[in-house]
Design a protein around this nucleic acid. Structure first.
Lengths: 209, 209
DNA sequence: TGCGCTATCCCACAAAAGAGGGATGCCGCC
DNA sequence: GGCGGCATCCCTCTTTTGTGGGATAGCGCA
């Protein structure tokens, strides 16, 4: 922790304009202090080691090293690290992964100043902060199994416009195996057909284009 | 125009934190002045009428009335209005539409402070400001024809996981007609199959999920 | 050790989708 | 008035997908 009473904050986002906005919001608060900024995951881990912030605001989609890996790296080294994910909603899957990786908060970039400040103070005080809507979506999809990495690989091929035969050739497996995987993909995602499976996966953030 | 030399700016975006960031950047400049903010298209049109800014920064994806309609409405009433689109890249199609609707500039939300300031000053001076990358993507896709609204309607159905038969029933046309449309959709988008057509359309911003 | 999950492969059959034609009427624009 | 684009419909044939089974092997974990 720190000597005075202020909450020390690290902000990680690859959008300079948004960082500027967050800095502006934090500046106006007596009990908060922005002590560092980073624009990708690697910088974030470095900055965390140096600064040991009380709360870290972390975007998920970033170049170099994404936010999820950064959260994992930071929490591996500093298990008590308090991290709030601050991102444009990208589906329940990345949100769930972030929470599993140890994030205590989840905020949308469309949030109001007050929501950001409340979340920072709540997480700094050791509480969690997950918007009801996000929590509901995670819960809703928790019923189904997650796709295996092989299944995601195949679905990516489908999204790219490859026929089963082509995917099979690419992955050096038989077309029948691809069809088997497809069956389970459709089942798990509750999709009508391969196109639907892709759009569901995109909406849920299972992968992106 | 205005009495003193400063460029009067209106900022339209539904993300308060980003607006805050832009405000912060503009505040630091002697020749720029933020005169108003709006968080959706309707408010933007109202604010424009009241304030007559020299330059308007406009997001495209917004609730109530989107940025494209706002640009059209403003330019219909004030043909000399100078507007810079400031958005996360959503494909060549929305970008092209915005430029056709009369925007003089296009900026990504991931831009640096300097790029934002340069663009504002350039557009205020009557110049255009389109990043080379965006221009290239628009040019690249200009070869192909745009989808008709009927074709987009059908492709949305495909994305939703509907079989041709179901789409036909929904639109009260024959399945053969849907197949005819699909053929031309695949041709126009240069897609291998319906799934590919959907992912290409999503990447290009022809529609979203 | 056994259970569950994953990945792999196989078969047969039904249902879609796509390719390759062709045809009509409408509307806007030169 | 004609030409191009659009929307509509029709036919045939091939290819691809999807359904409904079943089988084997590995791997981790209780």
């Amino acid at each position: 922790m720190n000597t005075d009473a202020s909450i020390r904050i690290l902000c990680v986002d690859d959008h300079p304009l948004l960082r500027e906005g967050i800095a502006g919001v934090i500046e106006g608060q007596d009990d908060l202090r922005l002590v560092g900024e980073a624009s990708n995951g690697r910088e974030a881990v470095d900055a965390f080691r140096r600064l040991r912030p009380d709360v870290t605001l972390m975007d998920l989609q970033m170049p170099e090293m994404d936010g999820l890996d950064a959260i994992k790296a930071i929490r591996a080294e500093f298990p008590a690290a308090r991290i709030i994910v601050l991102t444009t909603y990208g589906g329940d899957v990345p949100a769930l992964h972030a929470l599993r990786a140890g994030a205590q908060g989840y905020l949308l970039k469309s949030s109001l100043r007050k929501e950001l400040l409340d979340a920072i103070r709540a997480v700094a005080a050791g509480r969690k902060r997950i918007p009801a809507g996000i929590a509901a979506q995670i819960a809703e999809n928790a019923a189904h199994d997650a796709l295996s990495s092989r299944e995601v690989e195949i679905l990516r091929g489908v999204a790219a416009g490859s026929a089963n035969k082509v995917i099979a050739a690419t992955l050096a497996i038989s077309e029948e195996t691809v069809k088997s995987h497809m069956k389970r993909i459709l089942e798990k995602l509750d999709a009508n057909d391969r196109t639907h499976a892709v759009t569901i996966a995109l909406k849920r953030g299972i992968f992106s284009l």
